[in-house]
């Protein structure tokens, strides 16, 4: 399991109800179910991946978060997880609102567009950044609304979204983001992970 999922699973307490939005092949869900006795549900737009989840005994519905989150009652999950997909929605703000409505707490991870390799790529090559974490070309990327760790924190402040924890991944090492180290984390981390409500 990738480092990001390890971090997310550590944030999630045992025996809680979790909705994994964009759950992919269910790797995180299965880990939470087997190791932390979490009651897990998933939402995934790709049929093939939904079928994979069902074969693992996971309860996953096929659908797009931009349309399907509405059907879940308010605060019906202890945690809602959205891993590296916020930037791919047409209306990320709306999706975030729904996540916050459905979950008592929400875990959002974002690929950091402020990462130094991204900055250098644009600065020196003068072309849209292509990195390990952002492998697509500008014309085929699903990412419509890229942001940096700083952007996301600013956004939460502006919208009165409470950030309970801010974490980042730097060379596969996890660390806390604080006001003091924000400038550096926003350069050296490729991924931000936030617990918000």
């Amino acid at each position: 399991m990738k480092k990001e999922f390890e971090v997310i699973s550590q944030i999630i307490q045992n025996n809680k109800k979790v909705l994994d939005v964009g759950c992919g092949d269910g790797t995180l869900m299965q880990f939470l179910k087997l190791n932390q006795q979490n009651n897990v549900r998933g939402l995934e737009p790709q049929k093939k991946l939904v079928q994979k989840c069902i074969s693992k005994g996971l309860s996953v519905i096929e659908g797009d978060a931009e349309k399907e989150l509405i059907q879940f009652p308010e605060k019906s999950f202890d945690y809602v997880v959205l891993s590296q997909t916020l930037q791919a929605f047409i209306a990320p703000e709306e999706v975030l609102k729904q996540l916050l409505r459905v979950g008592k707490q929400t875990i959002v991870s974002i690929p950091n567009f402020g990462y130094w390799k991204v900055r250098l790529h644009l600065l020196f090559k003068g072309t849209m950044p292509v990195t390990n974490n952002l492998p697509n070309q500008w014309y085929d990327t699903p990412n419509l609304h890229m942001c940096t760790i700083q952007d996301f924190v600013n956004f939460c402040k502006e919208k009165n979204i409470k950030i309970d924890r801010s974490l980042c991944l730097t060379n596969e090492k996890i660390s806390e983001i604080t006001n003091k180290n924000m400038f550096y984390k926003n350069i050296f981390s490729h991924l931000g992970i936030f617990l918000i409500q």
């Binding site: 049929k47 069902i54 309860s59 519905i61 096929e62 059907q71 879940f72 009652p73």
Partner: peptide, 18 residues
């Protein structure tokens, strides 16, 4: 049906087969 099941917190999977 799926929406109703989700609304009451039931355990539901759904797939539309092509």
């Amino acid at each position: 049906i799926v929406i109703a099941l989700n609304a009451c917190g039931a355990n539901v999977s759904f797939v539309e087969v092509n």
